[in-house]
Structures are given as structure tokens and as C-alpha cells.
Amino acid sequence: MAAIEVQNLTKTYRVYRKRDGWMASVKALFRREYVTVQAVRGVSFHIEPGEIVAFLGPNGAGKTTTLKLLSGLIYPSTGSATVLGYVPWERAHAYRRRFSLVMGQKNQLWWDLPALESFRLHREIYRIDPAEFDQRLDELTSLLDVKKLIRQPVRELSLGERMRMELIAALLHAPEVLFLDEPTIGLDVVSQRRVQEFLREYQQRRRVTVILTSHYMKDVEALCKRAIIINEGEIKHDGPLDEINERFASHKLIQLQFAGSVIPPGLERFGRIIEEAPPRVKLEVPRNQIPEILAALLSQYPIEDVGVQERPLEEVISEFFTRSTPTDSNRVEAASR
């Protein structure tokens, strides 16, 4: 049985739209105008136990709304979902003990108290056996290298240290499903890498089922083999991460190193020059013309080394989101009373 099963999940919000000007304000006293925002549109997917999946999309695509639905924080408009056999929005106590939601922009720790005090509160809330609590706390603080910081007030910790404490709090009750919403947002490169390494090692040890949303493609590439892309509230891709380039990128990169110390002229006719560092140059060329372009380059220029690369995943996904930016007409329906 799938750990997470989602079928035609939809969430809409009815939001009051205020017009500019005092006359509009007076009219609104008698007749208000509303808009129906479709945050999630008929989303369907399933995730197997122990799988870690990237859930990608631009701001406003419906990622966080979907995670809130699966966490039982909000109710869907239509559709169905089960996580570990439970319907999330029924909010069964047994289900609450088996998942965790970590949001990079939300804090669950007491700001003025040491993190250890928040951990002890979690022990009481989840009724964790004291011996198990001590063992898990020791394991998590060791993996995240924060043993010396858990008695320090949270407000005195750096952003990266606080994020590691948030992860500990989320994992103390040993959840089987973990929803991670931007866990490395705002962190420096060192802190990002430390969180990535921890999540990879912990997931391999515990075989936790993970849904990860992140705007940092380094997180995704370090942790996930499968990606679900959502945009305009709809699933646009669900499959292996390495298929994204094949599906959405129309170009590849050819890196050339010429004999001598200069770059010969005339390369523009083969593709767009995106980087020059004599005697090296990088061209962006149509992926369906790679064989012909390579044959022509090798026959016309003294080339010492050549390589073909996919474009960076971040660029490909960013361009896809830009091409399919939603408009007011397909995201919003007006309603009034």
C-alpha cells in the first residue's frame, strides 16, 4: 500500500476583493465582491513507503496548500487523500503521532527557553518513553552536531542552528512521514549542506517517507530521485528527476577547448555563446542537433577537448515556470453578493 495516496484533490478559497477609492468602499457596505482562488486543482499522485520526493513549483503554485491538506491543517474542497491509511483532515490522534510538518518560516520552539525545554514538552505531548526520548535526542543531536547548544536559549542561536533544532523537535517522536516545506530557506551554504547531509543519512537509516518542497535545487539534487512539479495548482510532471531536462529543456551545453590560446571566430552560427575563457568556450545548442553540430565543429576547428552537458536544473525549471506563469483569468473566478 502506498504511504501517501492523493486523488483529484482540490482546494479553493473565497476571498473578498477591495476596490480602490472611497466610493468603492461605500458600495462594498451593500454589495461585496469576492474572488474564488483555486489553490489546488485536481491533484493526484502516490508515494511509496520510504520514498523521498521533491515537490516543486513557483510561489503560489499550491505546494504549501497541498502539504497543509496532507497534514490535516485544512479541509479540501473536493477529492480524497490518505496518508498511512488515515484521512488527514479527520485528524485522528493516531495519525498525528505518525507524521511531522517542518516549515522553514515557522517556529515551533519557545523563543526565550533552551531548545531542551521544548524537546521535553514534545516528550510529554507525544508520550515518548523517557529511555527512548534520551536515545533519540542523543542520536539527533549527534547527527546535527548541536549537543552543546540544546541548553542555550533559542533566541541566541543562529538561523542555521535554530533550523537544526526545529528538525530535532519534528523527529523526536519518530514519525513515519515527514513533510518538509523550505527547510533550508535563508540558510548559508554551510548550513544548507549540513541539513542536506543530515536528512539524507537520517532518511536512509529510518526509511522515512518524505515530501520536500524547496526553491534550492541543490537540496533537491542532493536528496531526491523523483520530482513532482506543480504549477497553477496542477501537476505538470511526476517522474524521475533526471527526466526534467529531457522533457522541458530544448537546449544542451557544449564545452569546447581549442588548441592554442585563442577562441576562433564564427562559433555563433552553431549556437549561443554563454561563456568564454580562452581557449575554452561554452555553447548553448538545440538538443536535437547535437550530433550534426559536433561533427561540424570537429571537422572545422582544432579542438583538443569537448564535452556535452545538460543545462543546470535550476535554470530549466525556472524557465518552465516563467513560460507557464498563471494569469488572473485561469486562477481566479469572480463571485459577488
Rank of each mutant, 00 (worst) to 15 (best):
I168H: 00
V208Y: 14
E268M: 03
A81Y: 05
V189Y: 13
R337Q: 12
R41F: 02
G62R: 12
L73E: 12
V53K: 05
L67K: 05
Q204G: 06
P264E: 13
S71Q: 05
I303H: 11
L140N: 14
Q38F: 15
P130C: 06
F248D: 03
L56K: 04
I47V: 10
C224P: 01
E139R: 10
R207M: 07
A94D: 15
A170E: 02
S318Q: 06
L212W: 11
R323L: 15
T141Q: 09
E197N: 15
P240L: 08
R97H: 13
E132Y: 11
P302L: 01
M1A: 00
R287M: 10
R17M: 12
D20W: 13
P312S: 03
R311W: 12
P278C: 09
A249C: 08
G57Y: 11
V208N: 14
R32K: 15
I235T: 14
G42H: 15
A174I: 08
K148L: 06
K18M: 11
V102H: 04
N59A: 03
F119A: 06
G260A: 03
L144H: 08
P88E: 04
V189L: 15
V285R: 06
L84A: 07
T64E: 11
A54R: 05
M1N: 00
Y75C: 07
A227S: 07
R14H: 09
R205D: 00
R226K: 15
Q108F: 01
G307V: 02
L159C: 11
T10V: 09
E197A: 13
E275W: 15
L187I: 08
F55I: 03
R155E: 02
D138N: 11
N107T: 06
S261P: 00
E161D: 05
M103W: 07
N59M: 01
D138M: 08
L180H: 00
T64V: 10
T141E: 10
K236P: 03
Q309P: 00
K148S: 10
V220T: 02
P153F: 07
H251V: 02
H122Y: 14
E90S: 05
D188A: 03
D134W: 12
E139G: 09
L298Y: 00
L267C: 07
V285K: 08
G104H: 09
S25H: 00
A39Q: 14
E284N: 08
K236T: 01
V26H: 05
V6L: 05
V262T: 12
G57D: 04
Q192R: 14
